[in-house]
Amino acid sequence: MFKQYIGWKFTLISVAVVIIVTTIWFVNSLTEKIQQEETKKVAIWVEAYRELIHSSADANLNLIGEIVTNNTTIPMILTDDQGRIIDQNNFDSSLFIGKPGYLEEQLASFKKQHPPFILGVDANSNQYIYYGDSLILKQIRYYPYIQLLVVALFIGIVLFALSSTNRATQNQVWVGMAKETAHQLGTPLSSMEAWLEILKEKEESAPLANELAKDVNRLKLISDRFSKIGSVPNLEECNLVVQIDSMVNYIRKRAPQKVTITLQSAEKEVSAMISPPLFDWVVENLLKNALDAMEGKGSITVVIENHPAHITVDVTDTGKGIPKAFHDKIFNPGFSTKKRGWGLGLSLAKRIIQDYHKGRLSVKWSEVNKGTTFRIWLRK
Rank of each mutant, 00 (worst) to 15 (best):
R252Y: 06
D80E: 08
K41T: 14
I85P: 08
A48Y: 00
W365I: 00
S227G: 01
T169P: 00
D245W: 02
L52C: 00
G98C: 03
E38S: 05
H114C: 05
I64M: 04
H327R: 05
Q243N: 10
M177F: 09
T169A: 12
N89W: 05
S94A: 12
L135S: 13
I322Q: 08
K258P: 01
T169C: 03
H327W: 15
L103Q: 09
A57D: 13
V173P: 00
T73Y: 08
I44D: 07
T72S: 12
V313E: 06
S275G: 04
S93K: 12
A161E: 07
H114D: 11
I352R: 02
L153I: 14
L240P: 01
Y5F: 12
M273R: 11
V315S: 08
S227R: 07
Q35E: 15
I311M: 04
I353P: 05
V151N: 03
V68N: 02
T23A: 07
W45Q: 06
L12G: 12
L348Q: 07
Q184T: 10
G176E: 11
V368Y: 05
L119M: 14
D245F: 04
L346S: 04
E104K: 10
N217F: 09
G298M: 00
H54E: 10
G176A: 11
G359K: 06
S246Y: 04
Y142A: 03
K350P: 04
T31E: 07
K339T: 11
I53K: 12
T39G: 05
M247H: 00
R84D: 09
A182L: 08
S271V: 12
Q82V: 06
I85A: 09
V158K: 04
I146V: 14
F279R: 02
Q36N: 13
F26Y: 12
P256V: 05
V46A: 14
A266I: 06
S227L: 02
M247C: 06
N70A: 10
P256R: 05
L107D: 07
K99D: 11
N306G: 01
R167Q: 14
S205H: 07
K370Q: 15
D122N: 15
P323M: 04
G345P: 01
L107Q: 02
M294Y: 01
K220V: 08
K339G: 15
L286G: 05
T316G: 03
E66Y: 10
M247K: 07
K3C: 00
T373C: 13
V282Q: 02
N217I: 06
S109W: 07
S93D: 13
V18N: 01
S223I: 01
S94Y: 09
L286N: 05
F279L: 14
D87M: 06
I304L: 15
T73R: 14
S347F: 11
T316E: 11
P277W: 06
P100D: 10
I300E: 04
R351F: 02
Y250I: 03
I304K: 08
Q147V: 12
Q113R: 13
E267T: 04
V303F: 04
K138L: 14
S231F: 03
I97G: 08
G321H: 10
D215S: 13
I64G: 00
S227P: 00
G98W: 04
M247D: 01
G298C: 00
